[in-house]
């Protein structure tokens, strides 16, 4: 109750301030908890840096880790008659009603980072990552190495998350189709992306005498956990080592490990959707039409994969989170 009250007071204050001062474009932004990961932190920062008063916005930010809090925030935004709502949803379902309310109120909704399962007419545009594309890029890179055999330690992320499914599927499909490719051991953080769980799984595989030459970890933290286990067991890794290390997200520290040759590959997951949405809103405000959307009203972020042998300091500066 206190929290609600505090939130209400905060909102009223922000509103009164905005009424008193400027007539910027009113935007409500709903995101997840920035403490979740390096990705989320960069994502939140990117949005707060873009939707500023100097840039002509009057933006309110809510970061909530659960679906109910996010829906609550969305209703508050509708009541406060914002012009635009931006959402990165904690859960893919349950948004239909709120999105329809927003549509009736004439509010335009943008999805960023991840999709919501709803009719494409319920949102103006979705600027999202294609997680499956990330997995496919990584598998294609692995294939391009032309190894004699692919013995893979597969560390999955939080089970059921879009990132985990998208990054796992291309690998498991490839392993089922090609007999040179085998998954030696598969493990997961279960309900988290815990690097320590990854370390334990790797330790168990090493102690069981299982040999693998590739670590396919579905985010940087988990790859780091596996590397700790390899170091502890005296197994070499990286460009000169026995085991190839693959991670995702392109945290700055991870890309530095690539540059140092300790890791081999890192797949990008772009958290920088703010600029694209900013341009779209400016276009709409100027009376224009948004172009380049696919049949699902999406714009898919272009995402790279980095190779330790070709990465440069410039890449780290440009793409590191």
């Amino acid at each position: 109750m206190k929290k609600l009250l505090a939130l209400a007071v905060a909102l009223v204050m922000i509103l009164s301030v905005s009424l008193a001062f400027a007539d910027g474009i009113k935007v409500g932004i709903i995101n997840l908890d920035p403490a979740e990961s390096g990705y989320r932190q960069a994502n939140v920062k990117n949005l707060t840096d873009t939707f500023t008063a100097e840039n002509g916005y009057d933006a309110t930010f809510v970061t909530a880790p659960t679906a109910d809090k996010q829906l609550e925030a969305a209703r508050t935004f509708i009541n406060n008659e914002v012009s635009y709502i931006l959402v990165s949803a904690a859960e893919t379902t349950g948004w239909d009603e709120v999105l329809e309310e927003a549509k009736e109120a004439g509010i335009k909704v943008f999805l960023f980072d991840r999709m919501i399962e709803t009719d494409p007419s319920n949102y103006t545009a979705a600027v999202v990552s294609d997680m499956r594309q990330e997995g496919e890029t990584a598998v294609a890179w692995l294939e391009s190495l032309n190894l004699d055999e692919y013995k893979i330690l597969h560390i999955q992320g939080q089970l059921g998350s879009a990132a985990q499914i998208g990054r796992s599927d291309p690998l498991t499909e490839k392993c089922a189709a090609d007999e040179k490719w085998t998954i030696v051991r598969e493990g997961t953080g279960g309900d988290s992306w815990d690097p320590n769980e990854a370390r334990k799984i790797a330790e168990a595989a090493i102690n069981a005498g299982e040999s693998f030459n590739i670590v396919y970890a579905e985010n940087d933290g988990m790859a780091d956990g596996v590397v700790a286990a390899l170091d502890a067991a005296g197994i070499t890794h990286g460009v000169e080592g026995d085991v190839k290390i693959m991670g995702f997200d392109c945290n700055k520290w991870a890309l530095e490990k690539l540059l140092a040759g300790e890791w081999n590959y890192d797949g990008q997951c772009s958290p920088f959707q703010a600029v694209v949405i900013d341009e779209m809103i400016k276009t709409l405000e100027a009376g224009g039409e948004i172009e380049g959307l696919n049949e699902l009203n999406q714009i898919i972020s272009v995402e790279k994969g980095f190779d330790a042998t070709t990465i440069t300091q410039e890449d780290i500066d440009n793409y590191g989170l």
Binding site: E203, D231, A232, G234, I235, T236, H237
Partner: peptide, 17 residues
């Protein structure tokens, strides 16, 4: 016993873990 990336000897095995 093995030698790790940093060139140091390390013990490994289930009991050690």
């Amino acid at each position: 016993i093995a030698v790790n990336n940093a060139g140091n000897p390390v013990l490994s095995g289930n009991m050690i873990s």
